[in-house]
Design a protein around this nucleic acid. Structure first.
Length: 709
DNA sequence: AGCACGCCGACT
DNA sequence: GTCGGCGTGCTC
């Protein structure tokens, strides 16, 4: 019997009263502190080790509770329970502690605790949701990210829905037949990879996908191969659109009932229903977004991740684990195959190949060249000559590309995000225009004067701090404005937009201008787009981020891969400086080469992922205090601390931002590869110690900080 | 985080 | 003598 509310669920109430009585008596005796009145306790393994669901770092351990006989059968490892936790017990009678929930992780015969165990208050549900395997994964992830086990478990186990739990899950289907290699034939080692999966091996690959619409099918085939071998498969993709495409492909390959989709879109109840079907072993393949990375797939044979450079693979909740790292852990811990695929290639992926942990899975150059569109660069000194091009604020070569493309099919125009408000930069040297008072970005106001977007201070005579230039240019132009202007330049052609609020999944094969922000590009039906124009070069490459180049290339390849191959007349133009490394990699369609060169450079500079880093942020003295308290591994290097930029006051406060009015500092700690675990452990221990001693305010610790300038 | 225990100063 | 300050430590 499980019930969510009620302090003393009827049937258990009487037993609890008995046990409380026993507690009191035992206390009085003092001689044998843990002798109970036999009848009230579970006859075997009367102690339950419980993970108490409170995120306090210093409480990151288990607590033992007595198992009443009435709960013996249901109180199995993995189930959710309610226990009293918190208050001391001295001073005679107590109705001690607050009722908190937790999970039983183990049943044992005896407790190490030298005191009186409190009884479990209630078994919330007999469903063993936190299995030993899932617990081990959560433990490993918590350790890697200097987080608490309870925090990670909260990410891994979805909130309970009692109605859904009462339903039964369908019976598991027998394994499907192994799939044909299909378009995996195009990659040298592709068919072999599928065979290995179907045979029960654990091959590991970094896969550079050929441009075009086939990657969802290829991911599905890999999953189907693992299923055919009688094992499970887990495919994690960045968003619901990608999940829908892989879902359709996998359904077509293995039929209904063998897989589920886990995304936020299906709603909490349906999501829990599907998650339970996986947890109960009735479905063995999962396609989902980030949160699905923890899905308790039985007998995992393959973990696959698509497009690991996409920021949505990083969970925003503490301790902010990244899907790539979690799946990597699963591949090792559960001895599963590993497939990291994308149109582009991250430095982390390149590192997996370089260290020999994974093997490359790529097509030969000739195939790549045939499948990819022809890419040209357009310097933006190339002034528009014709009036129409000028009206669209496009260089004439770009305008011609669009005009030619429109005779053959839809044309994609990729523009940076940010609506109407353009950021301003020096016309001569591209240095972003910043406020003299607070270094916030300058914006053009309605009347044409300048003002700071952060502090509002007006700027009357701006001058570039870098080169002394006095003229500004709009650094980026928003999607809507671009759409309007292009629409005027090509009045006979329909203009469709796809962006943050309205993302189109696909567009027809007929001529149209499709204006999209990065990541929201619709798939063009039929052969794909006739051409694409990539307008956001400066905006993407101008960011002061370690990943700016990689990210620009990733977004360009994502858009350009939707264009027909050059054999079919597909053409792409990117407005960017042709000597820059990401631009050259795009022209040559060589994402791996780009990643390998970036990796070499990071190794030289000691940057992640060649080193491991952690960021420590907080008030100045708290950061210093934590670093002083931490027993950092030998050779650890502390960079900074430096003052953290004050977040844009316009945007809503996010978790992790300093409280308003406070100025925070951030220090980076860098260690050699292989010392990441020691670094995480040291920071976690130091933070716990300070919390216990109540020294100063809490400090934020982030392993693998994503925004390294 | 709560909450109780404990070891020092002003009080009916 | 006792009430109560909050500094210190624990929570099965």
């Amino acid at each position: 019997m499980s019930r969510e509310n009620g302090r003393d669920p009827g049937e258990q109430g009487e037993q609890l009263a008995l046990i409380r009585e026993a507690v009191r008596e035992t206390k009085a005796e003092r001689a044998k502190p843990r002798t109970w009145r036999g009848a009230a306790l579970a006859p075997e393994l009367p102690v339950a080790r419980v993970l108490v669901d409170k995120g306090l770092v210093h409480l990151d351990r288990f607590f033992d509770y007595a198992v009443p006989a009435a709960m013996d059968a249901e109180a199995r490892p993995g189930v959710r329970v309610r226990v009293r936790f918190g208050a001391g017990e001295k001073g005679g009678r107590r109705e001690g502690g607050r009722l908190v929930s937790g999970f039983i992780v183990e049943r044992v015969a005896e407790s190490e605790f030298r005191g009186v165990l409190a009884p479990i208050a209630q078994v919330l549900s007999p469903e063993p949701v936190l299995t030993a395997e899932l617990l081990a994964l959560c433990r490993a992830v918590a350790d890697r990210y200097a987080g608490s086990l309870a925090d990670v478990v909260q990410l891994a186990v979805p909130p309970r829905r009692s109605r859904v739990e009462a339903e039964s899950s369908p019976a598991p289907l027998p394994p499907n037949a192994p799939p044909d290699p299909g378009s995996w034939e195009r990659y040298g080692a592709g068919p072999g990879f599928l065979t290995a999966l179907a045979q029960g091996d654990a091959p590991r690959a970094v896969w550079t996908a050929l441009p075009g619409p086939t990657w969802p099918d290829e991911l599905a085939r890999a999953a189907a191969a693992a299923l055919a071998g009688g094992r499970g498969a887990l495919v994690v993709v960045p968003d619901g659109r990608a999940a829908a495409r892989v879902d359709a492909a996998l359904g077509a390959l293995v039929g209904p009932g063998r897989h589920v989709v886990l995304t936020a879109e299906c709603g909490p109840e349906e999501r829990y229903r599907r998650w339970l079907a996986v947890s109960r072993g009735s479905v063995r393949a999962v396609v989902g977004t980030r949160a699905a990375m923890f899905a308790p797939v039985a007998g995992l044979g393959l973990v696959a991740l698509w497009d690991d450079g996409d920021g949505s693979h990083s969970d925003p909740h503490a301790p902010q684990p990244h899907a790539r790292e979690v799946l990597l852990q699963r591949a090792v811990g559960e001895r599963a195959g590993f497939l990291l695929g994308g149109l582009s290639c991250t430095v982390e992926a390149a590192q997996l190949v370089e260290t020999g942990w994974a093997r490359p899975l790529a097509a030969d150059r000739e195939r790549v060249r045939a499948a990819a569109p022809l890419v040209r660069t357009i310097g933006d000194g190339d002034e528009a000559r014709d009036a129409a091009a000028r009206a669209a604020r496009l260089p004439s070569m770009a305008w011609q590309l669009v005009r030619d493309g429109l005779t053959r099919g839809p044309v994609l125009v990729q523009v940076p995000r940010r609506g109407y408000a353009p950021r301003l930069a020096c016309e001569r040297c591209r240095e972003p225009a910043r406020c003299r008072a607070c270094a916030g970005p300058l914006e053009a106001r309605a009347a044409g004067d300048l003002a700071c977007a952060w502090c509002g201070r007006e700027e009357s005579d701006w001058m570039c701090a870098e080169c002394g230039g006095a003229r500004l240019r709009a650094q980026v132009v928003g999607a809507r404005r671009t759409a309007e202007e292009l629409g005027r330049a090509f009045p006979a052609v329909p203009v469709r937009t796809s962006g943050r609020d309205h993302v189109l999944a696909s567009v027809p094969a007929t001529p149209a201008l499709v204006v999209s922000t990065p990541g929201a590009e619709p798939v063009a039906e039929g052969q794909g787009y006739a051409a694409a124009l990539l307008l956001d070069g400066w905006a993407l490459l101008g960011r002061p981020d370690l990943r700016a180049g990689e990210e620009a290339l990733r977004r360009w390849l994502g858009a350009a891969a939707l264009v027909r191959g050059q054999a079919a007349g597909g053409a792409v133009a990117v407005i960017a400086e042709p000597t820059l490394r990401p631009v050259q990699a795009l022209v040559r369609w060589d994402p791996v080469g780009h990643a390998v060169r970036e990796l070499a450079e990071r190794a030289e500079l000691g940057f992640p992922p060649v080193s491991r880093m952690a960021a420590v942020a907080g008030r100045s003295d708290d950061v210093a205090g934590l670093l002083r308290a931490a027993e950092l591994p030998a050779g650890a290097e502390v960079l900074g601390p430096v003052p953290l930029p004050v977040p844009d006051p316009g945007r809503p406060r996010r978790p992790g931002d300093p409280p308003p009015g406070e100025v925070w500092e951030r220090a980076l700690v860098r260690v050699r590869p292989g010392q990441g675990a020691a670094l995480a452990a040291a920071l976690k221990a130091a933070r716990a110690a300070r919390l216990v001693k109540r020294e100063g305010e809490a400090v934020r610790v982030r392993i693998d900080p994503p925004d390294l300038g």
